[in-house]
Nucleic acid binder design. Structure first.
Lengths: 227, 227
DNA sequence: GCCAAAGCTGACCATATGGTCAAGAATCAA
DNA sequence: TTGATTCTTGACCATATGGTCAGCTTTGGC
């Protein structure tokens, strides 16, 4: 038995928490860079500043460590999947969606790359998540998008392709960071860059899908002028 | 010395060509799935139906095989980077660009994933290509886009972000195929699906960037009606 | 200070890795 | 048929892999 049993999740003493944190951080980097097979426990241990045995002591096995990392990433993901309803303003919802996705890519690029690496490898560990939880989320969002289209708030585009468009174009800046750096010639993108890209993507998506403000709807459909 | 020296590239006898072909195909799959480190020569050999020694005999080393694959992918890529000029119709150029990128992702998904895997891993083998050849191509295209914007043929968007948008949203269907399958619930996308997605992306990009037909320009700017 | 629990880690293991090599088999122009 | 070139491959090697374990030290509540 450990000390007092608090109801919250992060179990274990201070030492355990500190070391696990170091291991998880190092592992996220290494797995993101080399994929599940290509990553070695030895390298993770070195990056965490611990002997290999210690990593196995805390994490049990390479596989368990990897699964735990994926779960951590998916938790961050899910926290972003907030609820929207058909009554909200499409432009605002899409804008917020793009912005939060963009900043997620910026704040957790290694996590994004870890996820990408898993998917590229055929998603051996995430298949049920994709075709279960995530699929449901996408389809519930799709329903809302379709309602917007029916009410003339946006063009009748396929919502799934639209979601994929937003996902891919935002995650690009995390997953393909090396390419972005090579082509722009910069060592890293600044916060302003990210903000400008966010604005660009938002603009293209909203204008490209013919999203209208609810207020403009009441003003009659005779005027095709935007804004 | 081998037989007659023909000027074309694919050297070697029929046996060599056949085996190399089998090895390259198998290797593209395995490297795409597991990354450079995670791929094993043994697995490549098995998938090619040859003993490991034979793979090394033809390819020299794992590293040389990998580099050769990357070069093959980049050749396919470069063949697509045809020339455009500021005199062309922006809508047509962008449409053709999206379409060819989309079909490249469909026809060579393993190659696309191989490239993605290399970039996610920090592009250790492709850094100079990215910041050299590819960078120049992007910037030459960017110049054309800017000229279009100056002539009022499209909104003054940053051309580099636009190119990234097209790259990411098209490549998504190769790189994240597992995710697309899981969420759509389908075993594979059909040619019609790809065509519809192409149309969707083209529409969003062209409408979203305010691309106009050159003919509409002459008709005066009073009419804001589209199409 | 006591002692059980937690933390730590070098030595070790079976297996898999990329790569070499030598010796034989198939191919082919002459 | 000959002889040289190409092809084929099992045996082998040094190293790295994920994982185990026994025995040590440290920690922290009493």
């Amino acid at each position: 038995m450990a000390k007092a049993d608090n109801g919250s999740e992060p179990e274990g003493g201070a030492i355990r928490r500190r070391n696990e944190q170091a291991i998880l951080e190092a592992a996220e980097r290494v797995f993101a860079r080399h994929g599940y097979r290509g990553a070695s426990v030895q390298e993770i241990a070195e990056q965490a500043g611990l002997p290999k045995s210690n990593v196995l002591y805390y994490m049990g096995s390479k596989r368990k460590l990897y699964v735990r990392l994926l779960e951590r990433v998916m938790e961050r993901w899910n926290a972003m999947l907030d609820d929207i309803s058909a009554d909200d303003d499409p432009a605002e919802v899409l804008s917020a969606f793009i912005r939060s996705k963009m900043w997620m890519s910026r704040r957790h690029p290694e996590g994004s790359r870890l996820f990408a690496s898993e998917i590229i490898g055929g998603a051996p560990f995430l298949q049920e998540y994709l075709s279960g939880e995530l699929r449901n989320w996408v389809h519930s969002r799709a329903t809302v998008f379709r309602q917007w289209a029916e009410r003339g708030l946006m063009d009748p585009v396929d919502p799934v392709w639209l979601i994929f468009l937003i996902w891919s174009s935002t995650q690009h800046y995390a997953d393909f960071e090396a390419q972005v750096r090579g082509i722009t010639g910069r060592k890293a993108l600044s916060d302003e860059d990210i903000e400008r890209i966010t604005e660009f993507l938002t603009r293209v998506v909203i204008k490209g899908c013919g999203v209208k403000h609810p207020a403009d709807l009441a003003a009659g459909e005779a005027s095709l002028t935007e804004r």
